[in-house]
């Protein structure tokens, strides 16, 4: 397993390198001028040119890239144009909030999705199944921004249980986590239902039943380990989803996460900040992928990692 881990980690490097090259090229060819955005609305063309030189944006692409890599190796992610702050510092200040939202969001998804999915599968075709499905569908059809607004309006404004956005209170996380998790819960419910049905129909479960094992024992011993596989895969994919997709949730709740930082960077063509957020989120995504594969092999020893 250690050898596998080492190999995967080494393979992360080309992936990250590839991402940084693509990002670099995309920004370079994007019809948006970082120097112009930096210079602001009334800067003259001369000022823009001077700023372009100051920022090193007049160099050929390859040279800009090697300069960037050279600094990156020393752990220097550069300096945000707009915020006049080291990129690394900005990212590190946002990372804990993003992590909090990811963890609590996944918790909501699992806590809602798995029981609904399991109950639906066991009561297949009957009322609990249909009801569970309806709830799940509501979750997946509700636009997150609107859902967040509704939750805020009802549970922070009309019935003031939770704070109206921000991060100051311990309960601040509840509504963002619900908003972020509700849509995903539907996915987990559907996947759980599907895997449960699949496993229930599988021969070894039927055999176990035939051997006279109790329903609960069969469920715990055979069903869960098998149904868990796609669930774990799904949870691993939640991390990229949360980083890239919860920007709207972060916006509604004034949640200072990485998503908002990345969007801001892209909107203001803040090149070092774009590169920084892209690289760091990519690193997180790739690492979480490795983690998922590892956990999967632990849960289900039939998966071989050695190759």
């Amino acid at each position: 397993m250690w050898r596998y881990l080492a190999r995967r980690l080494v393979l992360t490097l080309p992936v990250l390198l590839g991402i940084s090259i693509i990002t670099f090229v995309l920004i370079y060819y994007l019809p948006a001028d970082p120097a112009r955005m930096y210079a602001g609305p009334s800067a003259t063309v001369e000022t823009v040119d001077r700023i372009r030189r100051e920022l090193g944006l007049d160099l050929p692409l390859w040279q800009q890239y090697t300069n960037y890599l050279g600094k990156l190796v020393q752990g220097d992610l550069g300096f945000s144009y707009r915020k006049q702050t080291p990129v690394l510092e900005l990212i590190l200040s946002r990372l804990p909030y993003t992590a909090m939202l990811i963890v609590s969001g996944i918790f909501v998804e699992l806590a809602l999705g798995l029981p609904i999915g399991l109950a639906s599968a066991l009561a297949r075709g009957r009322l609990p199944d249909r009801l569970g499905m309806l709830v799940a569908l509501l979750g997946v059809s509700a636009p997150p921004f609107w859902l967040g607004l509704m939750l805020l309006y009802w549970f922070a404004f009309q019935i003031p249980i939770f704070p109206l956005g921000g991060v100051e209170h311990p309960t601040s996380i509840v509504l963002p986590a619900l908003t972020a998790g509700l849509g995903g819960a539907a996915w987990y419910a559907r996947i759980m239902r599907s895997s449960t049905l699949e496993v229930l129909a599988a021969d070894y479960v039927r055999t176990a039943h035939a051997k006279g094992q109790s329903r609960h024992l069969v469920l715990w011993r055979h069903l869960l380990p098998n149904a868990l596989n796609p669930i774990i895969t799904m949870a691993g994919m939640d991390i990229p989803w949360f980083i890239g997709g919860v920007v709207l949730v972060e916006q509604v709740f004034a949640w200072p996460g990485l998503g908002r930082l990345a969007v801001e960077a892209i909107q203001t063509v803040d090149v070092p900040l774009i590169l920084g957020t892209v690289s760091v989120t990519a690193l997180i995504v790739v690492l979480s992928g490795i983690l998922v594969d590892l956990v999967q092999s632990l849960v289900d020893p039939r998966i071989r990692l050695s190759r």
Binding site: L149, L152, V252
Partner: peptide
């Protein structure tokens, strides 16, 4: 100065006195 507050939400915060 709080930043990152959507205007729709800021209206609610103002009405609530936050």
């Amino acid at each position: 100065i709080r930043v990152g507050v959507e205007p729709s939400v800021a209206v609610l915060q103002l009405e609530k006195g936050d």
